[in-house]
């Protein structure tokens, strides 16, 4: 029987290599489910918003709820200035949410369980936030690492800590999401294995697995929210220097 880690294997569907760099860019099961996620989002917005009316249909309500949710998140954490980056935050939220939720379907691949995917997104968020901060405030943006109202002699200690905590942000973002997804799926797979192995008594791990699936769906939504809201908070640091 397949081990609990088999579900995370990236299997090429179509092998592709970018010759000049010798770069492996095969279309894999990971890419397939990213495509499925984008397809679902496109379908949802296309069907939900065609002939969008004042009295929304069910699909339109879903679109509007997603929009209002992300918009409220940006407004609460960044303010009106942050609405310029609403498309980016919304894309980030939807990409992670869809990845997490598609992963809850047995047999699918959870692309957000891979540290390279989440780390890449985290690094991009931090680079984007830094670029925005430098563009808005110039070198004054560096005062982010030297909070005011602190005794002078603390600065030699404080500034390195602030810099490290800033640089560690993409890793904390990435680890939080990928590890949550991985751990949840391993747990589900393990309990799923027990159901078969224990025969008639498999009903017990089955019940546990049922509960765990509910929990995992909550975590899937929650981690997408956490990633997006932390990105908003970092964006807020860049836009409204404290």
């Amino acid at each position: 029987m397949a081990g609990p880690l088999e579900q995370f294997e990236v299997k090429p569907i179509m092998t592709m290599v970018f010759e000049p760099l010798g770069l492996n860019m095969s279309f894999t099961n990971s890419a397939l489910f990213m495509a499925v996620g984008v397809g679902i989002a496109a379908w949802l917005f296309k069907r939900g918003l065609e002939g969008a009316s004042l009295v929304p249909t069910r699909l339109q309500s879903i679109c509007e709820m997603l929009y209002e949710f992300v918009r409220g998140m940006v407004l609460d954490n960044v303010g009106k200035e942050g609405l310029r980056y609403l498309p980016a935050i919304m894309t980030l939220f939807l990409f992670i949410l869809l990845g997490n939720l598609i992963g809850m379907i047995p047999g699918t691949f959870t692309y957000t369980s891979h540290i390279v995917v989440t780390l890449f997104m985290g690094v991009c968020v931090i680079i984007a936030v830094t670029v925005i901060g430098l563009a808005r405030h110039g070198t004054h943006f560096l005062s982010l690492f030297a909070p005011s109202g602190v005794p002078m002699f603390i600065y030699p200690l404080l500034i390195p800590i602030e810099i490290v905590s800033y640089l560690i942000r993409p890793f904390s973002l990435a680890m939080r999401l990928a590890v949550n997804m991985t751990a949840g799926h391993i747990m589900l797979k393990t309990f799923g294995g027990f159901v078969i192995a224990m025969g008639i008594f498999g009903i017990l791990p089955f019940l546990v697995a049922v509960g765990l699936i509910g929990l995992e769906i909550i975590i899937a939504c929650l981690q997408a929210y956490v990633f997006a809201v932390l990105s908003c908070i970092y964006l807020n640091d860049a836009i409204n220097l404290h």
């Binding site: 990236v10 770069l23 492996n24 860019m25 894999t28 990971s30 890419a31 990213m34 996620g37």
Partner: peptide, 12 residues
Amino acid sequence: TYSSQVVWLVIF
């Protein structure tokens, strides 16, 4: 697998 994941992540 990293390069292919990142390439398709960026594309999608």
